[in-house]
Protein backbone atom coordinates (compact mmCIF):
# COMPACT_ATOMS: atom_id res chain seq x y z
CA UNK A 1 0.00 0.00 0.00
CA UNK A 2 1.21 3.49 -0.80
CA UNK A 3 2.04 5.73 2.16
CA UNK A 4 -0.50 8.29 0.90
CA UNK A 5 -3.25 5.68 1.01
CA UNK A 6 -2.26 4.63 4.50
CA UNK A 7 -2.34 8.25 5.58
CA UNK A 8 -5.82 8.71 4.13
CA UNK A 9 -7.09 5.67 6.01
CA UNK A 10 -5.53 6.93 9.24
CA UNK A 11 -7.07 10.40 8.81
CA UNK A 12 -10.47 8.90 8.09
CA UNK A 13 -10.34 6.75 11.23
CA UNK A 14 -9.30 9.74 13.36
CA UNK A 15 -12.04 11.90 11.88
CA UNK A 16 -14.68 9.21 12.43
CA UNK A 17 -13.63 8.80 16.07
CA UNK A 18 -14.09 12.53 16.58
CA UNK A 19 -17.52 12.48 14.95
CA UNK A 20 -18.62 9.53 17.09
CA UNK A 21 -17.88 11.64 20.16
CA UNK A 22 -20.12 14.47 18.99
CA UNK A 23 -23.07 12.35 17.88
CA UNK A 24 -24.41 11.35 21.32
CA UNK A 25 -24.22 14.95 22.53
CA UNK A 26 -26.22 16.16 19.56
CA UNK A 27 -28.73 13.33 19.78
CA UNK A 28 -29.30 13.89 23.50
CA UNK A 29 -29.89 17.59 23.02
CA UNK A 30 -32.14 17.11 20.00
CA UNK A 31 -34.32 14.53 21.75
CA UNK A 32 -34.53 16.52 24.98
CA UNK A 33 -35.47 19.73 23.20
CA UNK A 34 -37.82 18.00 20.81
CA UNK A 35 -39.79 16.18 23.48
CA UNK A 36 -39.32 18.49 26.43
CA UNK A 37 -39.51 22.04 25.17
CA UNK A 38 -43.33 21.95 25.05
CA UNK A 39 -43.47 21.41 28.82
CA UNK A 40 -41.26 24.36 29.63
CA UNK A 41 -42.93 27.58 30.55
CA UNK A 42 -42.76 29.98 33.45
CA UNK A 43 -45.37 28.05 35.39
CA UNK A 44 -43.42 24.81 35.01
CA UNK A 45 -40.33 26.46 36.46
CA UNK A 46 -42.00 28.39 39.27
CA UNK A 47 -44.82 26.33 40.75
CA UNK A 48 -45.17 23.29 42.99
CA UNK A 49 -45.96 19.88 41.51
CA UNK A 50 -49.59 18.84 41.77
CA UNK A 51 -51.66 15.67 41.42
CA UNK A 52 -48.88 13.32 42.56
CA UNK A 53 -46.36 15.05 40.30
CA UNK A 54 -48.43 14.41 37.20
CA UNK A 55 -49.09 18.09 36.78
CA UNK A 56 -47.76 21.45 37.94
CA UNK A 57 -44.17 22.57 38.05
CA UNK A 58 -40.80 21.44 39.33
CA UNK A 59 -39.98 24.54 41.38
CA UNK A 60 -39.03 22.70 44.60
CA UNK A 61 -36.73 20.33 42.70
CA UNK A 62 -34.92 23.23 41.01
CA UNK A 63 -34.53 25.06 44.30
CA UNK A 64 -33.48 21.86 46.06
CA UNK A 65 -30.70 21.36 43.54
CA UNK A 66 -29.66 25.01 43.96
CA UNK A 67 -29.50 24.58 47.74
CA UNK A 68 -27.53 21.35 47.47
CA UNK A 69 -25.08 22.85 45.00
CA UNK A 70 -24.60 25.94 47.18
CA UNK A 71 -24.00 23.82 50.26
CA UNK A 72 -21.56 21.66 48.33
CA UNK A 73 -19.55 24.70 47.16
CA UNK A 74 -19.50 26.13 50.67
CA UNK A 75 -17.93 22.95 52.04
CA UNK A 76 -15.84 21.63 49.17
CA UNK A 77 -14.27 24.84 47.84
CA UNK A 78 -12.46 26.01 50.99
CA UNK A 79 -11.55 22.49 52.03
CA UNK A 80 -10.26 21.57 48.57
CA UNK A 81 -8.30 24.79 48.05
CA UNK A 82 -6.71 24.65 51.50
CA UNK A 83 -5.71 21.02 50.96
CA UNK A 84 -4.26 21.86 47.55
CA UNK A 85 -2.27 24.78 48.98
CA UNK A 86 -0.88 22.49 51.65
CA UNK A 87 0.09 19.83 49.12
CA UNK A 88 1.66 22.23 46.62
CA UNK A 89 3.29 24.83 48.85
CA UNK A 90 4.08 23.17 52.14
CA UNK A 91 4.13 19.37 51.94
CA UNK A 92 7.53 17.76 51.66
CA UNK A 93 8.10 14.91 49.21
CA UNK A 94 7.74 12.02 51.62
CA UNK A 95 5.59 8.95 52.25
CA UNK A 96 2.94 10.98 54.10
CA UNK A 97 2.37 13.27 51.12
CA UNK A 98 2.27 10.28 48.80
CA UNK A 99 -0.35 8.67 51.05
CA UNK A 100 -2.52 11.78 50.80
CA UNK A 101 -2.14 11.86 47.04
CA UNK A 102 -3.00 8.18 46.69
CA UNK A 103 -6.05 8.74 48.91
CA UNK A 104 -7.22 11.55 46.64
CA UNK A 105 -6.84 9.43 43.51
CA UNK A 106 -8.77 6.61 45.15
CA UNK A 107 -11.47 8.97 46.33
CA UNK A 108 -11.96 10.00 42.71
CA UNK A 109 -12.47 6.37 41.72
CA UNK A 110 -15.16 5.49 44.28
CA UNK A 111 -18.57 4.90 42.62
CA UNK A 112 -21.16 7.51 43.45
CA UNK A 113 -23.58 5.02 44.97
CA UNK A 114 -20.90 4.14 47.51
CA UNK A 115 -20.69 7.82 48.44
CA UNK A 116 -24.44 7.68 48.94
CA UNK A 117 -24.16 4.73 51.31
CA UNK A 118 -21.22 6.33 53.09
CA UNK A 119 -23.16 9.58 53.48
CA UNK A 120 -26.13 7.72 54.91
CA UNK A 121 -23.99 5.78 57.39
CA UNK A 122 -21.77 8.65 58.38
CA UNK A 123 -23.79 11.88 58.21
CA UNK A 124 -27.41 10.70 58.35
CA UNK A 125 -27.05 8.00 61.02
CA UNK A 126 -23.77 8.46 62.87
CA UNK A 127 -23.90 12.27 63.11
CA UNK A 128 -27.72 12.13 63.38
CA UNK A 129 -28.20 14.84 60.74
CA UNK A 130 -31.07 12.78 59.36
CA UNK A 131 -31.89 12.89 55.68
CA UNK A 132 -31.21 16.60 55.20
CA UNK A 133 -29.69 19.24 52.95
CA UNK A 134 -26.71 19.25 55.33
CA UNK A 135 -26.06 15.52 54.96
CA UNK A 136 -26.61 15.64 51.19
CA UNK A 137 -24.31 18.61 50.67
CA UNK A 138 -21.57 17.07 52.77
CA UNK A 139 -21.83 13.81 50.82
CA UNK A 140 -21.67 15.62 47.47
CA UNK A 141 -18.80 17.78 48.75
CA UNK A 142 -16.72 14.75 49.63
CA UNK A 143 -17.50 13.24 46.25
CA UNK A 144 -16.18 16.28 44.33
CA UNK A 145 -13.26 17.05 46.66
CA UNK A 146 -10.79 15.10 44.48
CA UNK A 147 -11.86 17.11 41.43
CA UNK A 148 -11.40 20.42 43.24
CA UNK A 149 -8.11 19.42 44.86
CA UNK A 150 -6.66 18.17 41.59
CA UNK A 151 -7.75 21.27 39.64
CA UNK A 152 -6.49 23.59 42.39
CA UNK A 153 -3.16 21.80 42.53
CA UNK A 154 -2.72 22.16 38.78
CA UNK A 155 -3.65 25.84 38.99
CA UNK A 156 -1.25 26.51 41.87
CA UNK A 157 1.59 24.65 40.19
CA UNK A 158 1.10 26.61 36.98
CA UNK A 159 1.93 29.87 38.77
CA UNK A 160 5.59 30.45 37.83
CA UNK A 161 8.13 29.78 40.55
CA UNK A 162 9.77 33.12 39.75
CA UNK A 163 6.73 34.98 41.17
CA UNK A 164 7.18 33.24 44.48
CA UNK A 165 10.91 33.93 44.52
CA UNK A 166 10.39 37.58 43.65
CA UNK A 167 7.96 38.00 46.49
CA UNK A 168 10.00 36.11 49.08
CA UNK A 169 13.11 38.08 48.11
CA UNK A 170 11.22 41.27 49.00
CA UNK A 171 10.94 40.14 52.60
CA UNK A 172 7.39 38.91 52.21
CA UNK A 173 6.43 35.89 54.30
CA UNK A 174 5.50 32.63 52.67
CA UNK A 175 1.84 32.86 53.65
CA UNK A 176 1.58 36.44 52.40
CA UNK A 177 3.24 35.35 49.17
CA UNK A 178 0.66 32.62 48.73
CA UNK A 179 -2.20 35.00 49.53
CA UNK A 180 -1.06 37.99 47.49
CA UNK A 181 0.77 36.43 44.53
CA UNK A 182 0.04 32.74 44.12
CA UNK A 183 -3.69 32.57 44.88
CA UNK A 184 -4.81 35.52 42.71
CA UNK A 185 -2.96 34.01 39.77
CA UNK A 186 -4.30 30.52 40.42
CA UNK A 187 -7.87 31.62 41.08
CA UNK A 188 -9.28 31.29 37.53
CA UNK A 189 -7.98 27.73 37.30
CA UNK A 190 -9.33 26.89 40.73
CA UNK A 191 -12.76 28.31 39.84
CA UNK A 192 -12.89 26.43 36.56
CA UNK A 193 -12.15 23.14 38.29
CA UNK A 194 -14.64 23.87 41.02
CA UNK A 195 -17.44 24.64 38.59
CA UNK A 196 -16.78 21.42 36.67
CA UNK A 197 -16.91 19.52 39.96
CA UNK A 198 -20.08 21.30 40.95
CA UNK A 199 -21.78 20.53 37.68
CA UNK A 200 -21.06 16.88 38.29
CA UNK A 201 -22.52 17.14 41.79
CA UNK A 202 -25.65 18.83 40.43
CA UNK A 203 -26.41 15.89 38.17
CA UNK A 204 -25.70 12.99 40.52
CA UNK A 205 -28.58 10.91 41.84
CA UNK A 206 -26.97 8.15 43.87
CA UNK A 207 -25.23 10.27 46.54
CA UNK A 208 -28.44 12.17 47.37
CA UNK A 209 -30.69 9.14 47.17
CA UNK A 210 -30.24 8.12 50.82
CA UNK A 211 -29.02 11.38 52.26
CA UNK A 212 -31.43 14.16 51.30
CA UNK A 213 -33.74 13.60 48.37
CA UNK A 214 -37.47 13.67 49.02
CA UNK A 215 -39.82 11.64 46.85
CA UNK A 216 -42.61 14.20 46.82
CA UNK A 217 -42.42 17.38 48.88
CA UNK A 218 -44.43 20.20 47.40
CA UNK A 219 -42.91 22.95 49.58
CA UNK A 220 -39.51 24.52 50.08
CA UNK A 221 -37.24 23.35 52.90
CA UNK A 222 -37.12 25.61 55.96
CA UNK A 223 -33.64 24.79 57.23
CA UNK A 224 -30.56 22.79 56.35
CA UNK A 225 -31.93 19.96 58.44
CA UNK A 226 -34.93 19.52 56.13
CA UNK A 227 -35.19 17.14 53.22
CA UNK A 228 -35.68 18.61 49.79
CA UNK A 229 -36.47 17.52 46.28
CA UNK A 230 -33.71 17.57 43.69
CA UNK A 231 -33.80 17.54 39.91
CA UNK A 232 -31.89 14.31 39.15
CA UNK A 233 -33.86 12.31 41.72
CA UNK A 234 -37.13 13.91 40.62
CA UNK A 235 -36.37 12.85 37.09
CA UNK A 236 -35.72 9.31 38.25
CA UNK A 237 -38.99 9.28 40.17
CA UNK A 238 -40.99 10.67 37.24
CA UNK A 239 -39.49 8.14 34.88
CA UNK A 240 -39.80 4.99 36.94
CA UNK A 241 -41.94 5.41 40.07
CA UNK A 242 -45.02 7.32 38.97
CA UNK A 243 -47.38 5.77 36.46
CA UNK A 244 -49.15 7.79 33.77
CA UNK A 245 -46.87 10.82 33.70
CA UNK A 246 -46.90 12.88 30.54
CA UNK A 247 -43.75 12.25 28.56
CA UNK A 248 -43.18 15.96 28.04
CA UNK A 249 -42.99 16.40 31.83
CA UNK A 250 -40.16 13.89 32.07
CA UNK A 251 -38.24 15.33 29.16
CA UNK A 252 -38.89 18.88 30.33
CA UNK A 253 -37.36 18.05 33.71
CA UNK A 254 -34.36 16.46 32.03
CA UNK A 255 -33.99 19.52 29.82
CA UNK A 256 -33.97 21.85 32.82
CA UNK A 257 -31.34 19.72 34.55
CA UNK A 258 -29.11 19.51 31.48
CA UNK A 259 -29.63 23.23 30.87
CA UNK A 260 -28.48 24.09 34.39
CA UNK A 261 -25.35 21.96 34.05
CA UNK A 262 -24.70 23.40 30.61
CA UNK A 263 -24.91 26.92 32.04
CA UNK A 264 -22.43 26.02 34.80
CA UNK A 265 -20.00 24.59 32.26
CA UNK A 266 -20.44 27.67 30.09
CA UNK A 267 -19.39 29.86 33.02
CA UNK A 268 -16.31 27.66 33.45
CA UNK A 269 -15.46 28.00 29.77
CA UNK A 270 -15.87 31.78 29.88
CA UNK A 271 -13.63 32.08 32.94
CA UNK A 272 -11.03 29.88 31.30
CA UNK A 273 -10.91 31.78 28.03
CA UNK A 274 -10.83 35.07 29.91
CA UNK A 275 -7.91 33.75 31.93
CA UNK A 276 -6.07 32.60 28.80
CA UNK A 277 -6.39 36.01 27.20
CA UNK A 278 -5.05 37.72 30.32
CA UNK A 279 -2.22 35.32 31.02
CA UNK A 280 0.98 36.54 29.46
CA UNK A 281 3.82 34.72 31.10
Amino acid sequence: MKPQTKQKIAFTCLGLAAVVVIIPVIVIFVILIDKGISAINWQFLSTMPRMGMRAGGIYPAIMGTVYLVSGTILVALPLGVLAAIYLVEYAKRNWWTRMIEIAIVNLAGVPSVVYGLFGMGFFVIFFKFGASILAGSLTLAIMILPVIITASKEALMSVPHSFREASLALGVSKWQTIRCVVLPNALPGILTGTILGISRAAGETAPILFTVAAFYLPRLPKSIFDQCMALPYHLYVLSTQVPNVKESLQYGTALVLVGMIFLLNLVAIIIRSHMRSKKQW
Partner: peptide, 20 residues
Protein backbone atom coordinates in the same frame (compact mmCIF):
# COMPACT_ATOMS: atom_id res chain seq x y z
CA UNK B 1 14.02 36.89 61.23
CA UNK B 2 13.93 35.87 57.55
CA UNK B 3 11.55 38.67 56.64
CA UNK B 4 13.83 41.30 58.17
CA UNK B 5 16.85 39.70 56.55
CA UNK B 6 15.37 39.72 53.07
CA UNK B 7 14.14 43.29 53.45
CA UNK B 8 17.75 44.19 54.13
CA UNK B 9 19.31 41.87 51.57
CA UNK B 10 17.28 42.05 48.36
CA UNK B 11 17.71 40.07 45.19
CA UNK B 12 17.50 40.69 41.45
CA UNK B 13 17.10 37.58 39.35
CA UNK B 14 18.48 36.35 36.08
CA UNK B 15 15.20 36.64 34.23
CA UNK B 16 13.20 39.76 35.02
CA UNK B 17 10.24 38.58 37.09
CA UNK B 18 7.72 41.37 37.51
CA UNK B 19 4.33 40.33 38.86
CA UNK B 20 1.43 40.27 36.38
Amino acid sequence: DLIGLRKKVGMVFQRPNPFP
